[in-house]
Design a protein around this nucleic acid. Structure first.
Length: 550
RNA sequence: GCGCGUGUAGCUCAGUUGGAUAGAGCGUCUGCCUCCGGAGCAGAAGGUCGCAGGUUCGAGUCCUGCCAUGCGCGCCA
């Protein structure tokens, strides 16, 4: 239990003696102005109505009813309309750091998930080209969300869904054939909706080298398999460079071969939510909130294929059947329209899947600026910036941090030139430097950091404002983790890291650890160690390294 | 037109679910290097939180209507 939890519990106890409702849940906040104290609550104001008294009167009664000493409060004041401001004993507060030293890997961990399984699906790029910057945002976001969930007690599987069936793959195959035949001397004739990137020609060249018997480009199935394999391999290399690992790769094609698509269609028909019109099979998605009903199976005149959302529904049924009671899909906002349809399909099956299944985390588009101009991303036109381009130019850690330092639901402008030119002023270096500096203290002092336990150390000497600021910042980590996990917003961790790094640099610059009187050095080593471990924990959640020197 | 987002400092963005005098980075300006690493530090300037109403003790945050902007709206995926 953190000291904030203890204070909150004491507030609840005191409030109940005044007749507050049983479900009273005081909110503790850091006052904007540190001179107000360490914690503030508006509890007295929220109790004004139920208790029928003035906020300030309630505040006074609360203070009187509290056993302040046991929760480290040395001063309690009433301010403004009825805020309660608490000042904590610095030594009491600093002892909260011991939790970090004792169990570094447990710091900030929570057990919200109780070990339940959750599947996080992200990237899920069609194997029709390299991963571009939009996929990069998903990779960073999905991986960090997964780690956050693991940190808060869930058993997480990271899943990549391969759309290796359907029209786009057919286009890929035909585009490859066009390049193969062009290499044989025919005019290049890329089909309507085909892919124009140079990488297709490279694949065609390798195909010819590996398949001397098909110089004419007649074996479309072989070319399709070859191109898909080649692009999957490329994507794997991209992900490897980015340090993202998946637990499962789910192939759309398997949904056809194992009968899932067929079974899903039959189950939907049996549910009574389908109908035929103009020779096509429709699902009545409007029953479940959609704008209009959607075609499941095209009419014979249009080829008689299933539309994309049928395998999508079948796929999500497998998530449920594979035992995931929680599923999170990280996708670009351009896939927004699929949400209603997939959920409608799952509801129509009426097999006990809850309405909000699966969860979606949508991120807005990434636009790329290069040379002061926006680069239009189009795989088919062959112009894009790949994830690997970015990693090569600014480094894996910087790319990850850039993607994660902002909320997913606002548009991200990735200025490649800026990212590159800023590489020395990049916030990620600022954060990592703070970690390296703490390591440096132990290196120079020739102290094994792991031996710093904080036991028998008087932490009340950490009385400088910069020290107390850093202590408070570090102790906010668990609440930050909880907020980030609850809202699936890793950028809160990035913001915490930046603020912690700032507090650490300020402290480091103002005060020395080594060469001070022994009592001070011992206490400051505890703070340095806690800072080192805290920043490392935050970096780990975001998938960044915590270098010991830079 | 409809749906989902976004609009906060010159630029890029935070803002702890409705709290006190709205914050940070970059950029600009002024000072700091014999130091556990200056990849840094201290400070300054910079705001009609898109606009207008509403809800209440209290609104950047919630509601309504406008304006601007991104994405989606196919028997494409």
């Amino acid at each position: 239990m953190t000291h904030a939890d203890a204070l909150r519990a004491e507030l609840v106890r005191a409030a109940r003696t005044l007749g507050a409702p049983d479900d009273v849940a005081p909110i503790l906040e850091r006052p904007r102005d540190p001179s107000f104290g360490d914690w503030a609550t508006n509890l007295a104001m929220t109790l004004a109505k139920p208790l029928g008294k003035k906020p300030r009167e309630i505040a006074e009664a609360l203070i009187a009813a509290m056993d302040t000493a046991t929760v480290g409060v040395i001063a309690a004041e009433i301010a403004g309309p009825g805020f309660l401001n608490f000042r904590l004993d610095p030594g009491f507060q600093a002892r909260g750091l011991l939790a970090i030293l004792e169990a570094p890997h447990a710091f900030g961990r929570l057990d919200i998930g109780h070990g339940e399984r959750v599947v996080v699906e992200f990237v899920s790029a069609n194997p029709t080209g390299p991963l571009h910057v939009g996929h990069g945002r998903q990779a960073a976001l999905g991986d960090a969300i997964s780690t956050l969930l693991e940190y808060t007690g869930w058993t997480v599987d990271r899943e990549f869904y391969y759309n290796d069936a359907g029209a786009q793959i057919a286009n890929l195959a035909k585009s490859t054939r066009a390049q193969v035949r062009a290499l044989g001397g025919e005019p290049l004739d890329i089909p309507e909706g085909g892919y124009h990137g140079d990488y297709i020609r490279e694949i065609a060249e390798r195909y010819l080298a590996d398949h001397p018997g098909d110089a004419a480009g007649d074996d479309l199935a072989a070319m399709q398999a070859y191109a898909v394999a080649a692009l999957r391999h490329e994507q794997d290399l991209d992900l490897q460079a980015f340090g993202v690992k998946f637990d499962t790769y789910y192939l759309e094609s398997s949904l056809y071969t194992d009968g899932s698509v067929h079974n899903t269609v039959e189950a939907l028909k049996a549910s009574g939510h389908t109908y035929e019109e103009d020779g096509a099979l429709f699902l009545r998605t409007t029953t479940f909130g959609d704008d209009k009903d959607r075609v499941m199976k095209k009419s014979a005149a249009k080829g008689g294929d299933y539309t994309y959302f049928v395998p999508d529904v079948a796929y999500h049924v497998t998530k449920w059947e594979r035992g995931y009671r929680r599923a999170i899909n990280v996708q670009g906002a351009d896939h927004h329209s699929t949400i209603t349809r997939v959920r409608a399909g799952l509801q129509a099956l009426n097999i006990g899947i809850p309405q909000g299944y699966p969860d979606y985390v949508l991120h807005q588009m990434v636009t790329v600026m290069k040379g002061g101009e926006e680069v239009k991303i189009s795989k088919r036109a062959g112009s894009y910036v790949t994830v690997r381009d970015l990693i090569d130019e600014v480094g894996r850690d910087a790319v990850r941090y850039f993607y994660l330092m902002r909320k997913g639901d606002s548009q991200l402008v990735f200025d490649v030139d800026l990212a590159r030119s800023q590489s020395e002023e990049n916030p990620v270096y600022y954060v990592q430097m703070a970690h390296a500096r703490m390591c440096g203290i132990f290196r120079v002092g020739e102290i094994d950091a792991a031996t710093v336990t904080g036991r028998d150390v008087d932490l009340s000497v950490l009385s400088e404002p910069a020290e107390q600021e850093l202590v408070k910042q570090l102790l906010d980590f668990p609440a930050t983790v909880k907020g980030a996990a609850d809202h699936l917003e890793p950028h809160r961790i990035a913001a915490w890291l930046l603020e912690t790094a700032r507090a650490a640099h300020t402290w480091y610059h103002k005060h020395h650890v080594l060469g001070e009187p022994e009592a001070i050095t011992r206490a400051r080593l505890v703070l340095a160690r806690a800072t080192q471990l805290g920043i490392a924990a935050g970096l780990r959640i975001l998938g960044l390294t915590a270098p010991e020197r830079m």
